[in-house]
Amino acid sequence: MSGVLYLIPNTLGDGDSAALADVLPEPVRARAAALQYYIGENAKTTRAFLKKVGTERPIQEIEIRELNVNTPPGEVEKLLKPILEGTDAGLVSEAGCPAVADPGALLVRRAHERGVKVVPFVGPSSILLALMASGMNGQSFAFNGYLPVDATERGKRLRELEALSRKANQTQIFIETPYRNRALLDTLLATCAPSTLVCVAVDLTLPAETIVTRTVADWKKKAAPELHKRPAIFLLLGA
């Protein structure tokens, strides 16, 4: 009988064990502490997560394998092998929920194909937390990942998303590399209509958490929060 693949959420930023308890329910932490096989994007940061969780056995006795953007698709079957042989495993992301905007989705798909039971656990998702706090349409929304780096292409894509949002009354959500946050906000304000709503959610669940929703016109009148190198989620809703 095969083992179970548990999807273990991570925190959204650095913190100690006490902070972990604020965002991960006790049953999730207990299950995470009991597992002896983990799959994560980076072995070092996975060990750091397990140190915060507090494992039932020494961390050096826990098997940790990597799955990231550089992992060849053919290696995924090897990651599943211990599970197929009966070992329960935990899939953990660098931050937030595994398999959401995360390379772990391929492992989950393969697990379903091989008949492995997949169990998702409750934890912080920056995408959903930002949507909840934005005041925008939570009935219809789309996550678009990263927008183009090229300024011209980025502006073109934003105009497309704004038009779609206005037509379908659909919230559009996207992210950016933290050091380019300000450039993205500047493009948003230069591209979108004055009445379009824009939300910027920064450092979610962390002490410096900041969430601001304004029309483009109001964003231009008021100071924006400091965004440089801070994890951020951007949302827009055309009006």
Results as ranks from 00 to 15, higher is better:
residue 14 D to H: 14
residue 10 N to D: 06
residue 44 K to Y: 11
residue 140 S to V: 10
residue 226 E to R: 11
residue 107 L to I: 10
residue 102 D to Q: 05
residue 81 K to L: 12
residue 34 A to D: 09
residue 7 L to R: 04
residue 88 D to Y: 08
residue 69 V to A: 14
residue 174 F to P: 00
residue 210 T to A: 11
residue 183 A to G: 09
residue 93 S to I: 07
residue 13 G to L: 06
residue 190 A to E: 15
residue 196 T to L: 07
residue 67 L to M: 08
residue 18 A to Y: 12
residue 188 L to W: 00
residue 135 G to H: 08
residue 80 L to A: 01
residue 48 A to L: 11
residue 183 A to T: 07
residue 177 T to W: 10
residue 2 S to D: 08
residue 34 A to N: 07
residue 160 E to G: 04
residue 112 H to T: 08
residue 138 G to W: 10
residue 202 V to W: 02
residue 164 L to I: 14
residue 52 K to D: 07
residue 105 A to Y: 12
residue 65 R to V: 05
residue 42 N to K: 11
residue 29 R to Q: 13
residue 190 A to P: 02
residue 16 D to W: 03
residue 168 A to W: 09
residue 61 E to G: 01
residue 164 L to Q: 12
residue 105 A to Q: 09
residue 93 S to D: 03
residue 112 H to F: 12
residue 28 V to M: 07
residue 10 N to E: 07
residue 96 G to D: 04
residue 97 C to Y: 03
residue 135 G to K: 06
residue 198 V to W: 00
residue 62 I to E: 01
residue 53 V to K: 01
residue 137 N to Y: 10
residue 187 T to P: 00
residue 114 R to N: 12
residue 34 A to E: 13
residue 186 D to E: 14
residue 75 E to G: 02
residue 153 E to T: 09
residue 63 E to H: 08
residue 140 S to G: 11
residue 166 R to E: 08
residue 17 S to R: 15
residue 66 E to M: 04
residue 91 L to T: 01
residue 26 E to M: 13
residue 224 A to F: 02
residue 163 A to M: 12
residue 195 S to P: 00
residue 90 G to T: 09
residue 195 S to Q: 15
residue 12 L to P: 01
residue 117 K to T: 15
residue 185 L to Q: 03
residue 51 K to M: 06
residue 146 Y to Q: 11
residue 227 L to D: 00
residue 203 D to C: 11
residue 153 E to L: 15
residue 100 V to R: 04
residue 72 P to M: 09
residue 211 I to P: 00
residue 235 L to G: 00
residue 60 Q to Y: 07
residue 189 L to G: 02
residue 140 S to C: 12
residue 157 R to G: 06
residue 112 H to Y: 14
residue 3 G to N: 05
residue 45 T to M: 09
residue 159 R to D: 12
residue 91 L to D: 01
residue 131 L to Q: 05
residue 139 Q to T: 14
residue 221 K to H: 08
residue 184 L to P: 00
residue 139 Q to S: 14
residue 236 L to P: 00
residue 82 P to Y: 09
residue 190 A to F: 04
residue 230 R to N: 05
residue 4 V to T: 15
residue 32 A to R: 06
residue 231 P to G: 11
residue 157 R to P: 01
residue 218 D to W: 03
residue 168 A to K: 14
residue 203 D to M: 02
residue 148 P to W: 13
residue 116 V to D: 08
residue 4 V to N: 06
residue 73 P to V: 05
residue 43 A to N: 10
residue 231 P to F: 08
residue 70 N to V: 07
residue 161 L to T: 02
residue 90 G to D: 08
residue 193 A to W: 00
residue 125 S to Q: 13
residue 22 D to Y: 05
residue 81 K to S: 13
